[in-house]
């Protein structure tokens, strides 16, 4: 399936995947991030139960230096 992550199209072999699965694949497990799926925030406690579908748009953000 294809997902749009942070504005870029990414292809995955999997036909179905949870948000937690994706986070693991991206080596972001345990990192301080927040995720928005199709404009809705997915809380950390919902990572396991949220399934991704082909074409989903995700924003994955973190805290960076800023004023």
């Amino acid at each position: 399936m294809q997902l749009r992550i942070n504005g870029n199209i990414k292809s995955f072999d999997d036909n179905s995947m949870t948000v937690e699965g994706l986070v693991t694949k991206l080596n972001l497990l345990g990192k301080r991030i927040a995720i928005e799926k199709n404009g809705m925030i997915i809380s950390k406690s919902e990572f396991q139960n949220t399934t991704l579908q082909d074409g989903d748009q995700l924003e994955i953000v973190g805290a960076v230096g800023g004023g």
């Binding site: 942070n6 870029n8 990414k10 080596n27 924003e59 805290a63 960076v64």
Partner: peptide
């Protein structure tokens, strides 16, 4: 301390 929220580097 202030921080900004930005897209995480993927991969």
């Amino acid at each position: 301390v202030t921080v900004a929220i930005r897209r995480t580097n993927i991969g």
